[in-house]
Simulated scan of single mutants.
Amino acid sequence: MRAIYLSHPEVTIDPNTPVPDWSLSQTGRARTSALATSGALRNVTRIFSSAERKAVETATLLAFPLGLIPVITDAMHENDRSSTGFLPPDQFNDAADAFFAEPDLSYRGWETAAAAQSRIHAAVASALSAPTSGDALFVGHGGVGTLLYCALSKQPISRAHDQANTPGANPGGGNVFIIKDSVPTSGWHPMEALVN
């Protein structure tokens, strides 16, 4: 059995809508639909999703051809940034740098990286503790996905492992890493790599 962690792909950015309520863009939906119909996920028997709209949309598209219903897992949400709301890209990048650089400190009221890492790690470990056959797919977000990767690979929290900083990964999201025996087998790759 293996686990696949997938960050949702591209979204429609709307500064007037809370970030957890953003939906997939046409590009994100097309990429997800292509993966869903590729047969690459045929061994997946369980799908777990963050409760954020973009993740639920991704998980639902992937689950339908498999005859599965995603298990919505509240603890898989992205790091809580509600204290600042939407930040323009340059401000967000500065904030993300600070978030990863000081894991035990809150950036302007954000959930700390250490707290977010503990939360996502516990959620994934709990889901994987149930005996089952087949692969598990986790549909979530890039930030907490990176924190999960750092925890499982026993590396310090660092934005160096973020999907945006991984050569070959899609900076807009829709990337995966594979987990075997509770250890990542590689860094982030585009979701299309599952097909090849």
Rank of each mutant, 00 (worst) to 15 (best):
A36V: 10
T37H: 15
T37R: 15
S38C: 14
S38A: 12
R42I: 05
R42N: 15
R42W: 04
N43E: 15
R46Y: 05
R46G: 03
I47H: 05
I47S: 02
S50V: 00
E52L: 09
K54V: 06
A55S: 14
A55V: 05
A55F: 02
A55W: 04
A55Q: 08
T58Y: 05
A59L: 01
A59I: 03
T60G: 09
T60R: 14
L61V: 04
L61T: 10
L61M: 14
L66A: 08
L68W: 00
I69V: 13
I69Y: 07
P70Q: 13
I72N: 07
I72H: 08
T73I: 12
T73P: 09
T73L: 10
A75R: 11
A75I: 02
M76G: 13
H77I: 01
H77E: 04
N79Q: 11
R81H: 06
R81V: 13
S82C: 08
S83R: 13
F86D: 10
F86G: 06
L87R: 15
L87Y: 12
L87T: 09
P88G: 05
P89K: 06
P89A: 08
Q91A: 14
A96M: 13
D97F: 04
F100N: 04
P103W: 00
P103C: 07
D104Y: 01
S106E: 04
S106N: 06
S106H: 00
Y107C: 00
Y107N: 03
Y107W: 14
G109E: 04
A115V: 05
S118L: 01
H121R: 14
A122N: 12
V124C: 12
A125T: 15
A125V: 04
A125C: 11
S126G: 13
S126N: 14
L128A: 10
A130T: 09
P131H: 12
T132S: 15
D135F: 03
F138D: 09
H141C: 03
G142E: 06
G143H: 08
G143V: 08
G143L: 13
